[in-house]
Every structure is written in structure tokens, then in C-alpha cells.
């Protein structure tokens, strides 16, 4: 009996130690980062779009991006704090040479941007998609299509239905927005939030929400009714 009691006491001690260790491990888990790259022709508004999302405003003056600019925004999705790391890439060939491989390495999501007032920028999307595929970006990596500058209603050259067809053909979501128009800022946020939600759902399946039990797979998290995912 005494041995048993001793054994139980030892077991309880071990359990409390394990709990502490587990708590410290949970604490040590860093905020996850989702790397999202924004690509498209020069002057389509990639910088303004990323600036609108991360800074919440439209920049007064922008210069051509050299290489890449990194922007980050911490968002909270379903109670988890996530860092959205936006890679604002250069549109001009001379400013992106020898950088391209870094863009696509371990990328979590891709945002293709075109200018709704420039048909050429829409036509060039094929080239951008080819480049993306050429760098072995997995098909599971979410991709979205963004038509920027939709506030210039009089100058629109790319009809929405054409863009929608293109997006459907390439299995992408389409967003038409304007980084300049403050009314559209929520729409801009929703592009990245939508991607973050999809990524969270994907990654949760991989790292967090899957628990094996006796060789069986069980999703241990019930869907939260108070979810704050904007999708």
C-alpha cells in the first residue's frame, strides 16, 4: 500500500512537472509568420496595397521598389496571434534580378496584382503565373488575384467578368479594390485576412489541431462560434 501510495505521489509529481514543461513549451512557441508575396507589373499599386494593409493609409509618394520591401502586420485569428509578413516585390525587371528565388522560397501565399485601368498589366499576369509555377510553388499555396485602382471608374479597361473568368481558370479568388480609396480599405484588409484564415486552416491541420490517438486522427478543436475570421 505504502509503495503504491509512494508510486502515486511520484506519478503526481511527474505529472505536475510535465504540465509545467508543457506550459513553458507552449509559451516558447513563437507567433507564427505567414509569408505572403505580392507580385505584378510595375506601377500597378503593389506598394500602396501593402502599405494600406500594414500602415492603414495611402502613401503620398512612392518610388519604384528596389528588390523587395518587407512589411509586417500582426493579426488575431480565432484567438491566435499571427504575423502576416508581406513581401512587396519589385515590378521592374532590373530591380528584381537575382532576387526572384528569394521571393518564392517557403512562400505561404501569393497575391497577383494588376491595374484595372491597364489591360497590359492584366495580360502580363500569365507571365507572372508562369514565373510563380517555374519556381516550384506548390499548388496548395493559396493564390489571389487583385485588380487595383478600381476607383478610376472612367478609365477601367479590364472588365470584371473577364478578370473573374481568368481567376476561375487559375483557381484563384478575385478582389477588385483600390488602395487609394479609404472606403475600400476594408476590402484591402480582407484580401490578406482571407489568405491568413486559409493559411491558418491549412497549417492547423498540419501542426496544431491534429492529434493522433491510438493510431487514429482526431480534430481536437471544436469550431469556435465566436470566430473573428473575416472570410
Amino acid at each position: 500500500m505504502a509503495n503504491e501510495a509512494h508510486g502515486r505521489g511520484e506519478g503526481a509529481g511527474l505529472a505536475s512537472n510535465s504540465l509545467e514543461l508543457s506550459t513553458s513549451l507552449e509559451r516558447s512557441v513563437q507567433t507564427r509568420i505567414f509569408k505572403i508575396i505580392v507580385i505584378g507589373d510595375s506601377n500597378v499599386g503593389k506598394t500602396c496595397l501593402t502599405f494600406r494593409f500594414t500602415g492603414g493609409s495611402f502613401p503620398d509618394k512612392t518610388e519604384a521598389t528596389i528588390g523587395v520591401d518587407f512589411r509586417e502586420k500582426a493579426v488575431e485569428i480565432e484567438g491566435e496571434r499571427i504575423k502576416v509578413q508581406v513581401w512587396d516585390t519589385a515590378g521592374q525587371e532590373r530591380f528584381r534580378k537575382s532576387m526572384v528565388e528569394h521571393y518564392y522560397r517557403n512562400v505561404h501565399a501569393v497575391v497577383f496584382v494588376y491595374d484595372v485601368t491597364k489591360m497590359v498589366s492584366f495580360e502580363n499576369l500569365k507571365t507572372w503565373i508562369q514565373e510563380c509555377n517555374g519556381h516550384r510553388v506548390s499548388a496548395s499555396v493559396p493564390r489571389v488575384l487583385v485588380g487595383n485602382k478600381c476607383d478610376l471608374v472612367d478609365q477601367i479597361q479590364v472588365p470584371s467578368n473577364m478578370a473573374l473568368k481568368f481567376a476561375d481558370a487559375h483557381n484563384m479568388l478575385l478582389f477588385e479594390t483600390s488602395a487609394k480609396d479609404p472606403k475600400e480599405s476594408q476590402n484591402v484588409d480582407s484580401i490578406f485576412m482571407c489568405l491568413a484564415c486559409r493559411l491558418k486552416a491549412q497549417k492547423s491541420l498540419i501542426y496544431w489541431n491534429v492529434e493522433r490517438e491510438d493510431g487514429k486522427v482526431r480534430l481536437n478543436q471544436e469550431p469556435d462560434p465566436k470566430t473573428n475570421c473575416p472570410c
Binding site: Q30, G67, V68, M99, H102, Y103, R105, N106
Partner: peptide, 23 residues
């Protein structure tokens, strides 16, 4: 500047990968 950006991109990629591995 391009070289600097390249190095920064590489650094961030490494950091992301390390963080992902650690998590």
C-alpha cells in the same frame, strides 16, 4: 542596395524557416 536586400531576404527566409521548425 540589391545585395543588401538579397541578404535581408535570405536572412528573413532563414528566420522564417527556423521559426517554423521550432514551432
Amino acid at each position: 542596395w540589391m545585395e543588401e536586400k538579397r541578404e535581408e531576404a535570405e536572412r528573413i527566409n532563414k528566420h522564417n524557416a527556423a521559426l517554423e521548425r521550432w514551432n
